[in-house]
Design a protein around this nucleic acid. Sequence first.
DNA 1: GTTGCGATGTATCGGCCCGATACATCGCAG
DNA 2: CTGCGATGTATCGGGCCGATACATCGCAAC
Lengths: 211, 211
Amino acid sequence: MLELAILGLLQEAPMHGYELRKELATKLGTLRAAISYGTLYPTLKRLHSAGWISEQATETDIVPPMTSKRGRIVYKITAEGKERFADLLAQAGPETYDDAGFGVHFTFFSRTDRATRLRILEGRRRRIEERREGLRDVLARAGDRLDAYTLELQRHGLDACEREVRWLEELITNERSGRTPSAATGGTSDPAAGPAAEAPPEEPAPHRDRP
Amino acid sequence: MLELAILGLLQEAPMHGYELRKELATKLGTLRAAISYGTLYPTLKRLHSAGWISEQATETDIVPPMTSKRGRIVYKITAEGKERFADLLAQAGPETYDDAGFGVHFTFFSRTDRATRLRILEGRRRRIEERREGLRDVLARAGDRLDAYTLELQRHGLDACEREVRWLEELITNERSGRTPSAATGGTSDPAAGPAAEAPPEEPAPHRDRP
DNA sequence: GTTGCGATGTATCGGCCCGATACATCGCAG
DNA sequence: CTGCGATGTATCGGGCCGATACATCGCAAC
């Protein structure tokens, strides 16, 4: 999961660990808690030894006019890494539907083809619906056996589930009619711009590489 | 965290692993995903060797008239375990404020003294408020740098944060005025609610409208 | 000036927890 | 009587976290 996130961010631009972590924390939203270095660095090492990314130690002599930061390690995605990213991006399994997995995948939706987006959205919806049904059952069947606090927790959870299902429903509807999500809250009517909305499954988004 | 959950459930009644897991799944709400056996059994073993719980192998001869279940292991909390539970219940650290920790603690709120309940509720609120501020900053400062999907994810996260803060606020208000959570729509006042109070006065049936 | 402090930056270790997997038994339907 | 789903206990590899350590940089206080 984290592997996908790292590859995705490095596809936008090369970065060093510290930077990566901040991007991770802000972009990956609420579903995915801030990643820790105890996870990040071993994962980077793993990705490197797998050949998906390259490490480039930056010494002070590289950029003398700059603030001359002490040796950082800049990570850059490789061609194999891009393939790997595309593979991970296209697959939609059970781990894609839990909070963390869904959050990461959703973050890269503008680089995902529409069929996959729909599969993921529907899988997530199903997952949340199941959770919601479980909560309803508990409340209906055993509601009077539970103490007031537990009950309140269940109610709050149920409310959150219902809300998320509605959100997903809206996204799915938009997706089917070929709109970007921002159209929902009155963004510019810009049917073809931004994400790789209706572009055929070939080459979604032009990401800039070095010339 | 799981330790607290297990001790808490075993305080209600002795149980075997399978049962424990089901209780865990239903009671601990949405904040805490269903626990796996790969976690449960090692934890039970750990709790046993620490002396907090006892293991009692149930052979078929124990309860002949019953369905004669094949050898299960029934776990029972010990006196030391109860002390341990009380200790864990009373402490409110940073790990008490994340999703999983908060969910577990909240589940046992009816066995927690009011001062601790308040500390936990306020700590959780602060945590969510920080998350909310972070989201608002991203949306305000870098909103136009983000693609439509990432933006939508942030908005949804922000909405969930605001909603949870309101929920917590309400709970805190009720707590200060000595009401149980279900009394939100008007209830009895219980000024003498002390530590480890027995189940709060059962409120009228939950009014959940049927579609 | 130097001393301290917060942000930047890389790295490891112990430990919690998960998913997959492997067994074995029970009750029941085909 | 045979398979099959629910019940039940258990382990293993690995992802991920929190705590911790260590080093440099820029800046402000004294």
